[in-house]
Design a protein around this nucleic acid. Sequence first.
DNA 1: GCGCGAGTCTACAACGTTGTACTCGGCGTA
DNA 2: TACGCCGAGTACAACGTTGTAGACTCGCGC
Lengths: 343, 343
Amino acid sequence: MASTLHDVAKLAGVSIKTVSNVIHDYPHIRPATRERVEQAIAELGYIPNLTARSLRSGRTGAIALAVPDLGLSYFAELAASVIEAAEEAGVVVLVEQTGGDRDRELDLLRSPRLKMTDGLIFSALGMGQEDVEALDVPYPLVLLGERIFGGPCDHVTMRNVEAARAATEYLIGSGRQRIAVIGAHEGEVIGSAGLRLSGYRQALEVHSLPFDESIIGYTTLWHRANGATCMRELLDRGVEFDAVFGLNDTLALGAMRALQESGRRVPDDVAVVGYDDLDEAQYSIPSLTTVDPGQPWIARTAVQTLLDRIERGDAAGPARQLLAEFSIIERESAPPPIRSGTL
Amino acid sequence: MASTLHDVAKLAGVSIKTVSNVIHDYPHIRPATRERVEQAIAELGYIPNLTARSLRSGRTGAIALAVPDLGLSYFAELAASVIEAAEEAGVVVLVEQTGGDRDRELDLLRSPRLKMTDGLIFSALGMGQEDVEALDVPYPLVLLGERIFGGPCDHVTMRNVEAARAATEYLIGSGRQRIAVIGAHEGEVIGSAGLRLSGYRQALEVHSLPFDESIIGYTTLWHRANGATCMRELLDRGVEFDAVFGLNDTLALGAMRALQESGRRVPDDVAVVGYDDLDEAQYSIPSLTTVDPGQPWIARTAVQTLLDRIERGDAAGPARQLLAEFSIIERESAPPPIRSGTL
DNA sequence: GCGCGAGTCTACAACGTTGTACTCGGCGTA
DNA sequence: TACGCCGAGTACAACGTTGTAGACTCGCGC
């Protein structure tokens, strides 16, 4: 069905290698020959077989991206950025979903399906520090996320602790004293939840505010629904608070909804801050003050780092740690303090 | 670096084909031989080279999915469903973004990069009916979307006209008379916007309501921001309306925000209905009444149809048209009419 | 007139896998 | 004893491409 170099060569009356040379712009070809070959290519609608090329060259021109679930906005936006960066570099992206499940993540790292790609960008959610050895794989791997540190592969991540501290200090700076948290994970130290909670506690300490377990909301999956449920639980408990730090945007948005249902006004009664700066954070009502964790930079850097590894073939080079810069995006749900007096 | 059948064969002291046979559970192998081979495989950590297997078999075990942008929630959720369905069938998915740009879409259909896959699920946004011939490609193709009909390939789509009519009738049934539209495309007949607007007009006609151009809001890209902007334009125009039909959920959510900013209450002053039933539609405030267009079914069906084509190899078989069933999801932004009396 | 390099093109092998055809014993049956 | 068949395994070619080595023809300089 599909034509091959062979067919083109026969039609043009040249050898198969000459056709290959024409395609690759090899310089020493007579114009007449080149033209005949090009015409044959056009006539047959020849398209090179990338599988054969891959086999020959050992490169596929594809990378894999594994995320928990594209239904989660953060990962959808991350995937969009990764695909865009990859396209600019001329490679395509094979996307896998792990569901954030540890076993599926471990399976994936060993899957022969990865042989179809030159490397993997892996956003872990289910695995933990105890699985660090599973990251010692025989292909280029760039890790994303906050579940494992100090592994044998490159790791692109964000300043979770510092950013969470900055977000909390931002709330304190705007006059809030009792800041509830939505989305904590019981007993977690490493991982987005653990690290961000730790930043939260640092901020309280710096400002000599007490840490109050009763305004910490625990929930496992960071969905909107859980943000709302978790918020309702806090409200039912009858505890007092004048601000909420959602450990990510979807939790914060869900929490905001529950607050409004209960009659609280945001930000007048309760200020809300999220984390991720999702696209939708700027369109919620009120718009969501949040931490921009540098996701586009993370995506670009992950792709570049991976391609670099692939290019240089030094799978054994020293593992690099790359950290994205963050910033606080001030919006309506938690306005900045009114600066009185001096300019 | 990576070991091959050759290495395993040498280590086990058998021929390369025997190793291949062991891997494929060929029955006539002596247990002793099988064991030696399996041990050699384990010792070398042999992983079959899928590229070579693909070249040999003519199948890659991968399909491509082309969508405009994973940053658009609808396509993110669609991609999630497609990847899930593909995984169940044992194939992986290569995701491409076209930006909804016609030229990039046309390029993609001819791209040799597709040679790395067995077929394509293609969600067109920029191309139109005039490009129908471009769909006549030499590989299995399943079209999604509402831009092109009657093409030479299988097409999985939704009942746009009927669903939009039902949504509009739902608003009329709950007592609304002047229903604004957000997201129309100037002069479009085919395409999501054109078809849904047409369903809207049908509903008006059936109920003898006038079509009023002054409450039709036009905007090109269906982003949240555009929904809000478009709504503000209608409000500035000073026209009256008691309901809004957002041609998709993000537009409706953006419009809802603009309405609330302007002091209108949803649904008391203005009822709002969207289209898509995105995950976030159930967590907005108020939650969004919307059309569930059957997206999971579409994704599953697209994958099955494509794999079917690939399996049977009948690229030339008759093109199939597959239509998803829809339903109206009643939520707070447009509650159902209070049924008085009986029961 | 001959060698030499540059230009143009070809033949062949190899990437790692799998299908096909084949070999070689041993066993049951005529 | 001869025959064919079955189990177990091997050898080779092929998938479509590209790198390497080399063939052949000029034209140029000695």
